[in-house]
Amino acid sequence: MQSPWTHTTVLLSEAVDALLGAVPSASSADTPPLFVDATFGRGGHSRLLLSKLSANARLIAFDKDPDALAEAATIEDERFSIRHQGFRHLGELPPASVAGVLLDLGISSPQIDNPARGFSFRFEGPLDMRMDTTRGMSVAEWLADAEVDSIAEVIREYGEERFASPIAKAIVARRQTRGPLVSTSELAQLVADTVKTRESGQNPATRTFQAFRIFINAELEELQQALEASLHVLQPGGRLVVISFHSLEDRIVKQFIAKHSKEIFDRRAPFAAPHVMQFNALARVKPSAAEVAANPRARSAIMRVAERTAAAAPELRS
């Protein structure tokens, strides 16, 4: 039976066109191009890529979500395979073997809209928020034992929430008097009762839900690992395409590309050769007004594109 929760892929054509602009110097008839959709989701980017790739090309996808794997199983194409892993495992691919890597960050609409996943304050559901429901600790399990300082730090760092401390204290007080939080509605109501002022049009719980989701899935740490891995797996001329949806993600991507898009001189060794530039920053793309009008969830998206330079790709560390 088809899922009632649908997903509209953001920057679909733009991302695929950016990937296909890669011209890896190592590609030949003996080494067919390999592309990676490191966040399969519901397969929008993968399906369009497959429709445009050559017959000898290959596409490897990664995703933690069992629902995403079920969706991937509907793709009958010998060029396609998927791994039940997060994109931090990108570095397990052979060095300099990939023509293009796509990272479409954040969560998909089916994850948000399915109450059983616990991602949204708009629906009553278990306080879960795990991308991979087969392993790891849920938000409810973490909050049942976490110290107030740890909770406040997570809300402050990952939600950029100025009321982090009062919210954390309210969570622990609730736990001590009435038991731990177990549902999305309980958390949303607690935050609403604690946060008395908020930006117009924004639910008081928005930043707290974002913070707990990012923390419980180690999203920013995994992003940093995947970006570093891209240096190793991309061929010279290969493309890195990253779509982010909030400032914490985009800041990491922007700084990573900027860092590796210039020669770095060691001031302690002024006559030594500089560390070579490893990326060329190519583009920063935002959705068109028409796309945002058709899909309001696209409004915060930013796509950054970089190309691996001809500098020799470093060997993977064991």
Score class of each variant (00 low, 15 high):
Glu92Trp: 04
Glu92Leu: 10
Glu92Asn: 13
Leu93Pro: 05
Pro94Arg: 03
Pro94Asn: 10
Ser97Tyr: 06
Val98Leu: 08
Gly100Tyr: 11
Gly100Met: 03
Val101Leu: 08
Val101Asp: 09
Asp104Trp: 01
Gly106Glu: 00
Ser108Ala: 10
Ser109Lys: 10
Ser109Val: 11
Pro110Lys: 09
Gln111Trp: 07
Ile112Pro: 11
Asp113Thr: 01
Ala116Leu: 14
Ala116Gly: 13
Ala116Pro: 05
Arg117Pro: 03
Gly118Glu: 06
Ser120Phe: 05
Phe123His: 14
Glu124Ile: 08
Glu124Pro: 12
Gly125Cys: 00
Pro126Glu: 00
Leu127Arg: 00
Met131Thr: 00
Asp132Lys: 04
Thr133His: 04
Thr134Ile: 00
Arg135Met: 12
Met137Gly: 00
Ser138Pro: 02
Asp145Leu: 15
Val148Ala: 13
Ser150Phe: 03
Ser150Leu: 10
Ala152Val: 12
Val154Met: 02
Arg156Gly: 13
Gly159His: 02
Ala164Pro: 02
Ala164Glu: 09
Ala164Tyr: 06
Ser165Asp: 13
Pro166Glu: 05
Ile167Cys: 07
Lys169Phe: 06
Lys169Asp: 09
Ala170Phe: 05
Ile171Tyr: 04
Ala173Leu: 10
Arg175Tyr: 02
Thr177Pro: 05
Pro180Arg: 10
Val182Cys: 04
Ser183His: 14
Leu187Pro: 05
Leu187Gln: 03
Gln189His: 14
Leu190Pro: 09
Ala192Pro: 09
Asp193Pro: 07
Asp193Leu: 13
Val195Gln: 08
Val195Gly: 06
Thr197Trp: 10
Arg198Phe: 12
Gly201Trp: 12
Asn203Ser: 07
Pro204Glu: 02
Thr206Phe: 13
Thr206His: 11
Thr206Tyr: 11
Arg207Ile: 02
Arg207Thr: 01
Gln210Val: 03
Ile214Trp: 01
Phe215Pro: 01
Phe215Tyr: 15
Phe215Asp: 09
Ile216Gln: 01
Ala218Trp: 12
Ala218Arg: 15
